[in-house]
Design a protein around this nucleic acid. Structure first.
Length: 313
DNA sequence: AACACATCCTGACTGC
DNA sequence: TGCAGTCAGGATGTGT
């Protein structure tokens, strides 16, 4: 569910409340949420307990909390991915339990307040794991942590996120590299936008929104899009992601909430996603939804036409 | 290697 | 009311 703007909203909330917090105890209600922690629940609990959380960092849709290090030990992080339905809620211990809580991490904050980080996930596609960190391939800062200060872990990335490309809001994001990959790919452009190894952070909502803004059909082969048009598309991607971060993300239902359980309000700005049958905000034709990859693609059949010639304006 | 597809899950909602 | 079917913001493993 959550794409970059939703994950960033969560990251910012965690960074504010959990930086400097110490883990008191951990409860694993459903071990399936630790599927990426191969050493199992006990190891997860033992490794995490007593650690200090140093920050909250994000690349694309991957989120991690670097942990205090024991002498001689490699740098570890609590890695999280929200999958389709994951939430990270920060609650006071007496706040009513959420029914689908899979993991509870009890902490004491830097201000000595007791809080619970509750990992709630309906579909269990999301996960938590303790992961070791490696140097980024390019040696640059691994992700966004809301600070310009350099920390000892700043060019380290959890091994499980190492293959993820930089996202468009990353200062070290390389537009030319993305355009080059477009030229080499014959798949439809939407597939390529969703490929987190090409560019990260984009999911179904913001792919549909960006394509609508750039007037490109979702199945247009990436290699047939001119550099100028592809640059425009990526500019729209960047804009729509940034605007959605400003709005605290997109919420349609109970599935996306920030750390306080509040909804984001970007849904009012959507032009394509979830607008099936409603008039296109540009030309008035009804927005269509095609079945696509076991999900949906929303687009305007008039503004976003498949182009067979190489010239796609 | 590049690409397309199936798969991991649960719950909310719709229509008969 | 019950039940079947549909839908959901993602990543990854597998087969061609």
């Amino acid at each position: 569910m959550p794409e970059l703007p939703e994950v960033e909203t969560v990251r910012a909330g965690l960074a504010e409340s959990l930086t400097g917090a110490k883990v008191q105890s951990v409860i694993v209600h459903d071990p399936r949420s630790l599927k990426r922690h191969l050493a199992g629940s006990r190891d997860f609990i033992e490794t995490l307990s007593g650690r200090k959380i140093e920050a909250a960092v994000r690349r694309g849709k991957f989120l991690w909390l670097p942990l205090s290090r024991k002498r001689g030990e490699e740098q570890l992080a609590l890695m999280g991915h929200l999958g389709m339905s994951g939430q990270m809620l920060l609650r006071s211990p007496d706040f009513e339990a959420e029914a689908l809580t899979r993991v509870t991490i009890k902490v004491r904050t830097a201000e000595r307040e007791r809080l619970e980080l509750r990992f709630v996930d309906q579909r269990i596609f999301g996960s938590l794991a303790i992961d070791f960190m490696e140097e980024t391939p390019d040696g640059l800062t691994a992700g966004f942590s809301g600070t310009n200060e350099l920390f000892s872990w700043s060019n380290l990335i959890p091994s499980q996120a190492k293959h993820i490309a930089r996202d468009p809001l990353d200062p070290n994001y390389d537009l030319d590299a993305v355009l080059k990959k477009f030229k080499a790919k014959h798949s439809g452009i939407k597939r390529v936008l969703l490929d987190q190894q090409v560019v990260s952070g984009i999911g179904n909502i913001y792919a549909d929104e960006s394509l609508w803004r750039a007037r490109i059909h979702y199945d247009q082969p990436a290699s047939t899009i001119s550099n100028a048009k592809a640059s425009l598309l990526m500019a729209e991607v960047t804009q729509v992601l940034a605007a959605a971060v400003e709005a605290g993300g997109t919420s349609f239902d109970e599935q996306y909430k920030n750390i306080n359980g509040e909804s984001g309000y970007f849904s009012v700005s959507l032009n394509a996603y979830g607008m099936t049958g409603l008039p296109c905000n540009r030309c008035g034709r009804a927005i269509r939804r095609d079945n696509w990859m076991n999900r949906g693609s929303h687009y305007c059949p008039n503004c976003q036409k498949l182009r067979t010639s190489r010239a796609s304006k």
